[in-house]
Amino acid sequence: MAKKSYSFYPGCSSQKAASSSNYQVSVDTMCKELDIELNEIPDWNCCSASIGYAGGGELPRLALSARNMALSEQAHGDQDIVATCAACWLATKETQERLHDDQGLLAETNQALAEAGLKLKNDKKIRHMVEVLIEDIGYQELGSHVKKPLEGLKIAGYVGCQTNRPFGIDGESFENPKYLDKMIETVGAEACDNYEKKVSCCGGALAFSEPEKSQALIKDIIESAYDNGADMIVTPCPVCQMNTEVYQDQINAKYGTKFKLPVVYYSTLLSVAYGKSAKEAALDGQIIRAKQLEDIAGK
């Protein structure tokens, strides 16, 4: 397959020494194997995620994403914008939709952008990395790179919220999207078919401000994975990954559970199956180590 090139929006949490820097490492490994070229949007800024609303009004928030899109148009004219972070993807896509539907807002946004010499056409496709994998590469091609099938592993595909709603992946349902399960099967592992908490909320940013309420949600997400016999959880979202991994000790202390379930990104899963090293797959970024994947990577 010929090289595919995209205008890449990595987002704050993927930067060096940030909370999902391990996601970025495994994405880079996966993309190298699949001949996907990611061209970083020059000087991109934060999208304000979905918690920035209180401080920033509607137009300032739209302007943030509009600046990224305008910079992408300038630097990578014909390339789709691709994001790996659910919130980055959602905020950018929402901005595109809002400015498409409301020409008055688009005019105001451009008036603001002009302060920095920028202009937005707003005609680019905004895509999640998962869409690139399943639409541009395809399951068959994804599977053809597998050197070490992850046989014997049972994995709960936790899709979460923002990669799934309100836009989601084309052709998938909001209540039971199948793409993560298909990816799990593509790398030779078994997917938990009836994982009840597949699209449940982990609390998102409220894990910080309302820890008890959010941890009650997280507990159910992990418990359901155990109930379905999962060896680990896989997710496409940095916030889902962090929330379901790092609070397990606190949840154990509060609820008397004995959770110790690894939570990995799809890109880590693919990297291991593609025969990459533990370091290339970013397994050293796991707080709860994914021993079974380390063993496969070490073979």
């Binding site: 800024n45 739209l62 302007a63 943030l64 008036q111 603001a112 302060e115 010499g117 920028l118």
Partner: peptide, 14 residues
Amino acid sequence: KGLHAILKKAEELE
């Protein structure tokens, strides 16, 4: 500086 100018203008307009 450019980003701050954009945000300031956006806030004014809103």
